[in-house]
């Protein structure tokens, strides 16, 4: 996702041009669907969540402030909060416990895998499970490190170090040029 495209989408949103929604869906739809699914753990509910989220995104488009958050951060917040609301109302409706079960974070969904998404899934596998768990607790479940420590029964210090390593691993994956560049520079220096 280039910053230029981001800018373009934001402009369209502020002009209240419906094209913005189309572009947002093409660029973030699958990711936000994944986020929704991660929270509600039900594809059907996740579809509702995504639809409601996009309606909210459209309605709130003039409240988006690029100086306060990246476009994706804003989209993520809306989607995650919509998903949490959905989960709560679904819980009260059915009495069925569809809670964010911490044990679920270990079973990473492998359904509906698209070939073009395979590389990111493979990437995800590159991060060791123990780091993923901490990252998920932080990013999707909104736990504080203390809460994660209590919930996962891992000492706070370990949570902190796992988070640090997890984030570093993550950076390696989505920004692979950095180590390569470093390597090239290092090689150059050696020569």
């Amino acid at each position: 996702m280039s910053t230029l495209l981001e800018k373009h989408i934001v402009e369209l949103l502020q002009e209240r041009n419906e094209k913005a929604i189309s572009l947002l869906y093409e660029n973030y739809g699958d990711t936000l669907f994944g986020v929704a699914n991660k929270v509600v753990r039900n594809e059907e509910l996740a579809q509702d969540v995504l639809q409601e989220s996009f309606v909210k995104i459209w309605k709130k488009s003039d409240s988006y402030d690029p100086s306060k958050a990246k476009l994706f951060t804003w989209l993520f917040r809306i989607t995650r909060n919509t998903a949490i609301d959905k989960l709560r109302s679904a819980n009260t409706k059915t009495d069925k416990e569809i809670q964010i079960d911490v044990s679920d974070v270990y079973t990473l969904g492998v359904d509906s895998i698209r070939p073009e998404l395979m590389d990111v899934r493979e990437n995800l596998d590159k991060i060791e499970n123990k780091y993923q768990v901490v990252l998920e607790a932080l990013f999707f479940q909104g736990m504080t490190q203390q809460e994660a420590s209590d919930e996962l029964d891992i000492p706070l210090g370990t949570i902190k170090s796992r988070l640090k390593i997890g984030l570093r691993e993550l950076k390696k994956i989505y920004d692979p040029t950095t180590p390569v560049l470093c390597l090239l520079i290092a090689l150059n220096l050696i020569q």
């Binding site: 996702m1 739809g29 699958d30 990711t31 936000l32 669907f33 994944g34 986020v35 699914n37 991660k38 594809e43 579809q47 995504l50 990246k70 994706f72 951060t73 993520f76 969904g109 359904d111 509906s112 895998i113 698209r114 998404l117 990111v120 899934r121 990437n123 995800l124 990252l135 990013f139 993550l170 950076k171 994956i173 989505y174 920004d175």
Partner: peptide, 11 residues
């Protein structure tokens, strides 16, 4: 954003 993208599912 990077972590969320890893969890993308085809809608």
């Amino acid at each position: 954003e990077a972590f969320a993208k890893m969890h993308a599912i085809k809608a």
